[in-house]
């Protein structure tokens, strides 16, 4: 009787030691992994860096035509193929895809660990000013992703009848196209 009892007492003490150790470990682990304490700040840091980089990329790829000759359009020959303008102008309604030269430039400016989604939004002026959009690079973002955007102005002579923007112009107006890029780390 006594022997058995002493055995069980011993087990009880070890058990409590383990329980106590586990308790502290679990609490500390949960704290570090929890969203309350550290993680929102870290993800926000990543956000600040990534968001700024995204705006920088869009600004670098936006090449205005300063001495544009509106009568000599479409002007694709004088627009560099790694610019946002060329990428938008070359889009084709049947299969809207960014051109390879643009994608190369984008890939080079963003680290390989950054994934992206690319969308364009514009106002269809001939259809009661509804907002239309196209997805050009279709990746599904994670909840931590950040979005950046830039408005590019296209002129009627820039687009041909195969362009998705063709029907959205009314005579002699310009079209504001918003390029929206969503970025996240993998």
């Amino acid at each position: 009787m006594i022997r058995v009892m002493s055995d069980e007492k011993g087990q009880a003490f070890t058990l409590e030691g383990i329980t106590a150790a586990l308790l502290i470990l679990i609490v500390t682990y949960t704290l570090f992994e929890s969203s309350v304490v550290v993680s929102p700040i870290w993800s926000e840091y990543g956000d600040i860096q990534l968001k700024q980089l995204g705006y920088d990329v869009l600004r670098s790829l936006d090449v205005h035509r300063t001495n544009m000759n509106l009568s000599a359009c479409p002007d694709t020959q004088n627009i560099t193929r790694n610019s946002l303008q060329y990428m938008l102008i070359q889009l084709n309604t049947s299969n809207p895809q960014p051109n390879q030269e643009f994608l190369n430039a984008l890939d080079m400016m963003l680290d390989p660990s950054i994934k992206k989604r690319l969308e364009v939004y514009w106002v269809n002026q001939s259809n009661n000013n509804t907002i239309e959009h196209l997805v050009l690079i279709n990746n599904t973002p994670i909840p931590d992703a950040v979005g950046v955007s830039r408005i590019i102005v296209l002129y009627p002579c820039d687009v041909t009848s195969s362009s998705p923007f063709y029907g959205s112009f009314t005579n002699d107006t310009a079209l504001a196209v918003e390029v929206r890029m969503i970025l996240w780390h993998v």
Binding site: H64, W122, A174
Partner: peptide, 25 residues
């Protein structure tokens, strides 16, 4: 930058319409 570089290519009416589109977006 749009005001500086793009408005110069547009007449009054087109400029008005461009501003409307930007507002909507």
């Amino acid at each position: 930058v749009i005001a500086r570089l793009d408005f110069q290519h547009l007449d009054c009416d087109a400029e008005e319409k461009l501003i409307d589109q930007i507002k909507l977006l």
